[in-house]
Structures are given as C-alpha cells and as structure tokens.
Amino acid sequence: MVKVRVKYFGRLRELLGVKEEDYDVEDSTLADLLLKHIPSRHPEAANEWRKTVFVTVRDDVAMGRDGMPILKNHFILVGGRSPDLTYRLRDGDEVAILPPVGGGDDEG
C-alpha cells in the first residue's frame, strides 16, 4: 500500500472543505487519484470537482489522445515537480493541486 498526502488550495479547498488529507492507494497513477480516489471520498462534491479540475463534455471528463483526462487550467505538483497524469504514485508523495493563481494587489 502506498500512502500519499494531498493538499488543496483556494476554491478546491473550499469545495472539499479540507486543506490536506492522506490517501492509501495501491498501484495508482496521478490520474486515478484525481478521477477516482478523491471523488469517491467526497461524493457530495464529486461532480463539481470533476467540472472544476477537468475539461468536461456533457458532464463527462474529456479524454486526450493519450487516454488521460484533460486538466482544465489546474496544475499538479508532486514533491514540487510537475509530472504527467500517468505518473505512478509512490509512498510518501506530496501531491498539491493548484487552481489558477492570482496573487498580488489587483486584477490588472
């Protein structure tokens, strides 16, 4: 079993109502985590999660030519690096799911 810590920020933290949480997964890719494990732990927010994180067509997550889901302007870091969604999770990984950023003072 592989234990990973997942961190949420901004609107995703608000949507799921949690800043970070641990997942025990087995033989899973980053795509599995985002598409299966996280939504199944948060069923009440699952639909909104999919629509927020992924490109969707009629409520279904759109898949790219590589068979992987297409992220909607979100950015995933694992241990500070940005791997493909095919990345196979390893024990101790820290996965951060980053919505589009917007720091600073105004919207200019």
Binding site: F9, G10, R11, A96, L98, P99, P100, V101, G102, G103, G104, E107
Partner: peptide, 20 residues
Amino acid sequence: HEVPIWKKEVTERGSRWIES
C-alpha cells in the same frame, strides 16, 4: 501569474476567487 498564491475577494454582494 506564476506564484502559487490565491486571492478571494469578499464584497458586499458575495465572494469570488480571483484568477489572473
């Protein structure tokens, strides 16, 4: 545009996350 900092604007009419 690049630094992972998020901002929520709370106004008299509600709130929203600001995305660059």
